[in-house]
Amino acid sequence: MASTITKSLFKHLISSSPKPPVSRLFSTATAQNRTQKLERIADELLDLTKLERYDYSILFRLKTGINRYGLAVSGVTSPASSAPGSGAAETKAAEKTAFDIKLEKFDAAVKIKIIKEVRSFTDLGLKEAKDLVEKVPVVVKKGVTKEDAEAIIKKLQELGAIAVLE
């Protein structure tokens, strides 16, 4: 019973639906051309190798101004403003705010002091800190502000270690 009501309601909706405007009837040729063009582009993209598709996706994102996190800050760029090297200049102009501390070398005599110091500015346990220090050269802390990183590096250098800011 419910299916007959649904069928009759469906037939009523179809028969009472408005007819497309006349201008739409004449534009089917352009719609078919657009569809054929899109199908041709899709076929060409599918013929690419994985590496070529990856390169294409990067190129497409660059040309449309879309980066990994969404639209670029400046919006969609025009072809004139997307000159080679302009993106690299913008990245270099942005100042780095998060730094990594890399422990490059230390004297074996001060190994225990270095481990204690690494534990003081990380949340590592004794074994984890020891394993980390023994893997020299290694990044011991990531994403630190410049002031904090310089203070930590100074402490490590006072103990006899060679640490750098990356």
Rank of each mutant, 00 (worst) to 15 (best):
M1G: 07
M1E: 14
M1Q: 11
A2L: 08
A2D: 15
S3H: 13
S3W: 11
S3I: 12
T4S: 08
T4P: 02
I5M: 10
T6H: 08
K7N: 03
S8K: 06
S8A: 15
L9F: 06
L9P: 00
F10G: 03
F10T: 08
S15H: 12
S15G: 05
S15Y: 01
P20T: 06
P21N: 15
V22Y: 13
V22D: 11
R24E: 15
R24C: 10
L25T: 03
L25V: 12
F26N: 09
S27Q: 12
T28I: 14
T30K: 09
T30V: 06
Q32S: 04
N33I: 11
R34L: 14
T35Q: 12
K37H: 06
L38K: 05
R40C: 07
R40Q: 13
L45C: 10
D47I: 02
T49K: 08
T49M: 06
K50L: 09
K50S: 08
L51K: 07
Y54I: 14
D55R: 10
D55G: 02
Y56K: 13
S57C: 11
I58G: 03
L59H: 14
F60I: 02
R61V: 01
L62T: 03
L62N: 07
K63L: 04
T64S: 06
N67S: 04
Y69I: 08
Y69C: 14
G70Q: 09
L71R: 13
A72D: 13
V73Q: 12
G75Y: 04
V76E: 11
V76F: 07
T77F: 02
S78M: 08
S78H: 10
A80F: 07
A80V: 13
S81G: 09
S81F: 05
A83G: 09
P84S: 15
G85N: 08
A89Q: 06
E90G: 13
T91W: 12
K92R: 05
K92G: 15
K92T: 06
K92M: 13
A94W: 04
E95Q: 14
K96I: 10
K96F: 13
T97M: 04
A98D: 12
I101L: 05
I101A: 00
K102H: 05
L103Q: 01
L103R: 00
F106P: 00
D107N: 15
D107R: 09
A108Q: 14
A109D: 11
K111I: 01
I112V: 14
K113W: 04
I114P: 00
I114A: 12
I115N: 02
R119E: 15
R119S: 03
S120M: 06
S120V: 14
F121S: 04
D123K: 15
L124A: 03
L126E: 12
A129M: 03
K130M: 12
K130W: 02
D131C: 13
D131S: 08
L132Y: 03
L132W: 01
E134F: 13
E134K: 08
K135W: 03
K135L: 15
V136C: 11
V136D: 01
V138M: 10
V139C: 04
V140M: 01
V140I: 11
G143F: 05
E147M: 08
D148H: 02
E150G: 07
I153N: 00
K154L: 09
L156E: 00
Q157M: 11
E158K: 12
G160Y: 00
I162T: 15
I162G: 01
V164F: 10
L165N: 01
L165P: 01
